[in-house]
Nucleic acid binder design. Structure first.
Lengths: 342, 342
DNA sequence: GGGAATTTGATAGACGTCTATCACAATCTG
DNA sequence: CAGATTGTGATAGACGTCTATCAAATTCCC
């Protein structure tokens, strides 16, 4: 009924409280034989340390640092806002979150920031990674200094980081292909693609997955080369309008991230009779509106709040030294249509 | 930097620890003037009680009771499994979960169970509600005895319960209509519907939303009267096969819950050339397989694990007397297709 | 076997809050 | 103004764990 305490462990193992404590907290000066006796007692009793009491006693605090790219990207700004709210909420659990921003796509700046982090002031880091060798090396150094590191939204492949919280972008692209293909079922024609500059890696993966599905499942629908929007609304609008005019047989549009507003405007300019199915990424006020007025048919989304919550939970688990680290439920590729808008 | 404690509050308010404690824990014997002085100090300092320390001191435990319908319904059994896992996980936070089962759709049995709950042994209840007056009355009595009550998956309309964790089923039906309509775009014909018996209320709401969307947005697609499957696989198979044979212009099928297996079999029997779009509810091993082999086009789902987590979090918040109670993020209607399967 | 080194035990106080008790002060009653 | 009543303060110990210190016991080495 009541949980065993270290007192029970000491009694069962036939040792003193001090010794139990030494074993629990990996202090030295315990003979191997004694240690195993204590561990055995812990196992038999099913003892689990009371984290609340332990943290209370040692005045533990979790000092986390979140690193995001700066810039206009509306998904990142939404993520930043969620982060601020979550930071306020977890304060009561003695978790202090500091947010840092670095120029987007600048691996050097990110690596510099990481190198400058003081293990005396930071226990764990969550970052939207730029995938580059300098970054990987900087992460390795961080870990060597005893700081926990996870990636967020955009992964850093390799063994350096201790976890990733975000969606599978190839899967996201495949899902987009699957949806758009079905929306265009029975018709044949071309598909326009708009890529932004949100994260080069993300968009490349999305394109990959998208074209995979189109090629194998919907061979009557032919993807055009992606338009490079670079977050510039007018550029997207012009280029997409031009493509739509040049190829009257465009029956679908896939927008992989930034640039949704430009795409919506280009589509609004089309003559009323023309029927184009549209799938885009990231639910924002703009894409939401376009979904409601019928310009977009579906929006793929990643829940940034859950990503933030997941990163916090994962870091805390790592810092609590839970073995194995707590499995954070994977972030899903969410599909929104007009009628399941949140 | 460090959070204020009750000692700081006492000092600032110019009173003793005892008085602060009396105010914090709503004990009587404090003059109104003194009380407001303490409250003012709390406000000025931004004091928040350290829940971990408080719970440690008073050996607080959260005793929760989850009430689920018994029977073969695979969604409910999945939910039960998730509940068992979560129960093990939250044990370390001093939360003890007891699971009770009642006959499905039996309002009297549910009300009896509620009436029998002892406030000495249970602090909070989460239940899959059957919507009936006896139940509402029983809930009111529970609340009067000081037990927190929330509904799970299936709501009990009205002010008695303190929260609901689950999806909006009208919205789910609308989403299904929206998807199936688009999948059948450009074709005209009939839509078959399969309702199970999972929860009468849920299915009625789903049908409502579904037909709404079909009527207003896809008038060329005409819904047939729903088949009542009652969890009986063979019955679903036979009736759906018969309908498919009788109406060669059926171009879509919407299965609202139980009965997916029977529907899949009926569809597998169709001649190869016939193209029917299929949308069903609840992701299970069977619906997953049907999605993978192309029998189903989309599956709508509610994440039962999150529902369980949400109910636990909500109940704990209510019991901690947080004001306002913590806003549990709403459960989303999730859409799965072959390529975004989790 | 004696001294040094290592391992273990005992004890005390801390973390922030709760509960209980008792004494003392302030207010009310008549 | 005495006595009853109510409000307040002081103190002690508890919750389960951690940290630190010092003494005692055990082991090791020559």
């Amino acid at each position: 009924m009541t949980r065993p305490t270290i007192h029970d462990v000491a009694r069962v193992a036939g040792v003193s409280l001090s010794t139990v404590d030494r074993v629990l907290n990996d202090r030295e000066g315990v003979r191997e034989k004694t240690r195993s006796r204590v561990l055995e007692a812990i196992g038999n009793l099913g003892f689990e340390r009371n984290l609340a009491a332990a943290n209370l006693s040692r005045k533990r605090r979790y000092r986390l640092c979140f690193i995001l790219p700066e810039g206009e990207n509306s998904f990142m700004r939404a993520l930043e806002a969620d982060l601020a709210e979550e930071a306020a909420a977890v304060l009561r659990d003695f978790t202090v979150i500091e947010t840092r921003k670095v120029p987007a796509f600048d691996a050097g700046a990110l690596a510099d920031l990481l190198r400058g982090l003081d293990p005396e002031a930071v226990d764990g880091v969550a970052m939207v990674a730029t995938d580059a060798t300098v970054v990987r090396i900087a992460v390795r150094e961080l870990r060597a200094r005893g700081i926990a590191v996870v990636t967020l939204v955009s992964d850093l492949p390799g063994p350096e980081k201790q976890g990733f919280v975000g969606i599978d972008n190839v899967q996201a692209g495949r899902t987009a292909g699957s949806l758009l293909g079905r929306f265009c079922r029975g018709r044949s024609g071309r598909i326009a693609m708009v890529s932004g500059s949100m994260l080069v890696r993300d968009h490349a993966e999305r394109r990959l997955g998208f074209e995979q599905v189109l090629r194998t499942e919907f061979p009557d629908q032919t993807p055009l080369a992606p338009i490079e929007g670079r977050d510039d609304k007018n550029r997207v609008r012009e280029q997409l309008s031009a493509q739509l005019a040049e190829y009257p047989d465009i029956i679908g549009v896939y927008s992989m991230g930034a640039g949704n507003r430009g795409a919506a405007e280009a589509l609004a300019d089309l003559p009323p009779g023309r029927d184009v199915a549209v799938v885009v990424h990231e639910l924002t006020p703009y894409s939401r509106e376009a979904l409601l007025d019928g310009t977009f048919d579906a929006v793929l989304h990643q829940n940034s709040r859950r990503e933030v919550q997941g990163a916090i939970a994962l870091l805390r688990g790592l810092l609590d030294d839970q073995t194995p680290p707590p499995a954070v439920e994977p972030i899903r590729v969410e599909i929104y249509m007009r009628d399941n808008l949140p």
